[in-house]
């Protein structure tokens, strides 16, 4: 006789209830995602016009009806972000990749353990702390907020991401690929440079892209280092504007036109993050297949 346990009805209810809860939790988590994305897209899309990309800050001229005459654009922020993150990338790439190569090629010695620990420390450190360090090291010394200080802070934030991805990707390169070069008697450095690194390059670029997207959205360290600037500036040793800084600044103003600019910058940043994440996902998928 196939009899059910006497308390099974209650257990089944608990089972259904808890399964429902897990589904509910997942849906609940997707609600803010959908809300944030749709708000950013709908409100931000209204801000994207020619002026948005071609003008810098315009002082709000308040009319009698309280409306601002000319909102201006965020060209200074776009140029600033490109310069700051670009220079950060140039600084972070060699350190990140070569440190990753070191961890992958010489994985088990005490130096590697220390280096690995330090990448963990760096990636665990709140970005504001990195910003404070750059502030003390550069801004305080030079008595000048500067784009360069911001680049240094962002570079420090990028390094652990790039190092870790590089190490993990290099370890995935099959040993047989090295053996082919080894059989010809090539030294280790030659194998690494001509066989291993090129094979792993697309994977490493994935990590670099993710680090790039994350750094572009970082705000707190920039607040302490590049400060912000109302004009288009390309001078590395002076304050500079950056997109996320504008998002922050224009959120906290009473002028609706500037609030709209904030949504616009948010849309640009979100699109960047979305594009990078989607393309990375697409790339890793086709690689694992």
């Amino acid at each position: 006789m196939i009899t059910q346990a006497t308390n099974y009805r209650r257990r089944k209810l608990v089972d259904y209830g808890m399964r429902g809860l897990t589904i509910g939790a997942t849906v609940l988590a997707l609600i803010p995602l959908v809300l944030i994305l749709s708000y950013v897209v709908f409100r931000g899309a209204g801000a994207l016009n020619i002026a948005f990309f071609t003008q810098a800050y315009e002082p709000p001229v308040v009319g009698l009806d309280g409306e601002v005459g000319n909102a201006g654009g965020v060209l200074h922020g776009i140029i600033g972000s490109l310069i700051i993150v670009g220079i950060a990338l140039i600084m972070a790439l060699p350190i990140g990749i070569l440190a990753g190569v070191f961890l992958a090629e010489y994985p088990s010695n005490s130096v590697a353990t220390v280096v690995r620990f330090c990448t963990d420390v760096l990636s665990a450190a709140p970005s504001i702390v990195i910003g404070v360090a750059a502030y003390v090291l550069i801004v305080q010394r030079t008595h000048q907020f500067s784009a360069l200080a911001g680049s240094v802070a962002l570079a420090v934030l990028m390094v652990p991401v790039i190092t870790r991805t590089t190490e993990e990707i290099l370890k995935l390169v099959p040993h047989t690929m090295r053996e082919a070069a080894m059989a010809l008697g090539a030294p280790k450095w030659w194998q690494t440079l001509t066989v291993v690194l090129p094979t792993a390059m697309s994977g490493i670029m994935t990590g670099v892209l993710l680090a790039f997207a994350r750094a572009t959205g970082e705000t707190a360290p920039l607040l302490l280092t590049v400060l912000g600037n109302n004009n288009v500036s390309v001078k590395l040793l002076e304050p500079m504007a950056a997109l996320p800084l504008l998002t922050y600044k224009y959120t906290d103003t009473p002028f609706p036109a500037q609030n709209t600019l904030a949504w616009g910058t948010a849309l640009v940043l979100t699109l960047l993050v979305l594009t990078v994440n989607l393309s990375v996902r697409w790339a890793t998928r086709s690689r694992t297949k």
Binding site: P94, I95, L98, A99, V101, F102, L103, E105, Y106, V111, A112, V114, V115, C118, T119, V121, L122, A125, V129, I130, V132, A133, V136, L137, V156, V159, P160, T163, P187, K188, W189, W190, T192
Partner: peptide, 27 residues
């Protein structure tokens, strides 16, 4: 070649350690 390669990567790996030390020291 191998020694130079090792030293080169070691140098950049130690840069990571130096960054952590710098952040801590500066703060």
């Amino acid at each position: 070649g191998d020694v130079i390669f090792w030293l080169l990567t070691l140098f950049f790996a130690l840069m990571v350690v130096a960054l952590v030390a710098a952040v801590g020291y500066v703060a």
